[in-house]
Write a protein that binds this DNA or RNA. Structure first.
Lengths: 249, 249
DNA sequence: GTTAACTTGATACAGCGTATCGAGTTTTCC
DNA sequence: GGAAAACTCGATACGCTGTATCAAGTTAAC
């Protein structure tokens, strides 16, 4: 375990030299606190150092650069994606639904995580644990390894994408300084001009319903999640013919 | 049309003053050329101005800032997502499959588009045209407007996410300067240590198969796309019971 | 006790987005 | 026709970024 972490990144504790004033864990915690509170854009190496009461270049004693800092942050939040120990229930559909909800709520706590998205693919301890858990759940579906991996990708893509869209507005708002409604109102005249031109009937129907009947994002999220789980169910047992259900486990 | 574009952004042609040396379209084209060739990180306002043989602040005469530049770029590439005029075939499944493939190949030509991802949600002419086309196709499925919108989100999320993962490696490679294999080899010792520790059996199975039997990304993409289309098919007609097919259109 | 390994902080460099301002150019209005 | 408004354009500058470099101080090992 210790040895493994040392293989992931270079060893933390030095052989000689003065005792470090803090550790990688504290640095990661401080960085996450900044990004949670003020967004990823507010996180800079100087700012992190200042929050730790250290000189501007101090963080570089612990990590090689900002990329590694973000790798540490991502790994830390990935831990919040994991199923708590001993909480396995045996039903793959429930397991995957709970996983997706855990991921979403973790990204609500750490919006920058959704912002980073699927771009960081580096192996890290908690990422590997997450893979292990997801593959362990998918194992009940009698898929080929290829299908299992693609299914896992589909789950991650779905969750990250939905949360990105959910959080896009409030991130844009933070970035531009406009309030949410002001940002939307900025494009309203253009949208209305398109609608009234009459050559986009479906789009017009959408905006017409947007004002009254459309549900909130929570309902959309749950609906989309069940559709995703349906598609996984449909691919179980190696068969992929549409409309074919899988025999009970 | 002209009027509509003027509502989207402020008018392009000034009433008085010297003739602009170039237009917004040329600026957008130059910016896309930079991002295509050298990545989004290489695109700066100064660099763009230099490529246009203009002073550093010249681009600001045409657009309000970098955000608007990227909005223009995104809208331009979104045009490549659109179905060519008169190419509608009537079968929703074929339409959606073709749309997904068009999007993927456009993002292969413009990898920065995948990088920007789902974060930019602003309405723009081609984005509205894209909505119109997708909703027009989904209309055949007899869904509620809510379900249609969520389905559309699912499609975009799926395509963007898959392409992001596909391109993540080569983007990381461009960013760090390492070759692809070197980047992967960097984490290989750690992965091997995890596997040989024995407490991640599923992950070990995955890496074992990765060397021999696993297919390339093209096959994964096609498999995932058909699963997505299955799940849309399953939700048709307002019914959502798993395994229920829709009567032929 | 010496030396090697390390932390720390200052300084510096090249780059970024863009605010500001002055000068030049073209159109509109009186 | 002349004045003024509206615009382009370029230079300069500010505050910010990641981080390379280097000197000084601290600690453990030999």
């Amino acid at each position: 375990m210790k040895e493994r972490e040392n293989l992931w990144l270079r060893p933390e504790q030095p052989a000689r030299g003065p005792r470090p004033r803090f550790g990688r864990a504290e640095m990661t915690r401080a960085a996450i606190a900044i990004a949670d509170a003020e967004g990823l854009a507010a996180l800079s190496m100087r700012r992190l150092a200042a929050d730790l009461d250290a000189g501007p270049m101090s963080p570089y004693s612990y990590i090689t650069g900002k990329d590694e800092l973000i790798e540490l942050m991502v790994d830390a939040v990935t831990a919040e994606f994991l199923r708590p120990d001993g909480a396995a229930c045996g039903d793959w559909r429930t397991e995957l639904r709970d996983l997706a909800r855990r991921m979403r709520s973790a990204m609500h706590r750490h919006p920058w995580m959704a912002e980073i998205g699927l771009r960081r693919q580096a192996a890290s301890p908690n990422r590997i644990r997450l893979f292990e858990q997801v593959l362990g759940v998918l194992d009940a579906l009698e898929l080929s390894m290829d299908a299992m991996l693609t299914t896992m990708i589909m789950i991650f893509v779905h969750v990250y994408g939905f949360v990105q869209i959910e959080l896009a507005d409030q991130e844009a708002q933070r970035h531009t300084g406009l309030e949410l409604s002001a940002w939307m109102r900025r494009q309203l005249p253009y949208i209305e001009s398109v609608v009234s031109a009459g050559d986009h009937p479906m789009f017009a129907r959408m905006t017409a319903e947007a004002g009254r009947t459309l549900t909130g994002f929570d309902e959309r999220w749950e609906y989309g999640l069940e559709r995703l789980l349906d598609s996984i169910q449909g691919s179980a047992g190696g068969r992929r013919a549409a409309g074919e259900t899988r025999p009970p486990v």
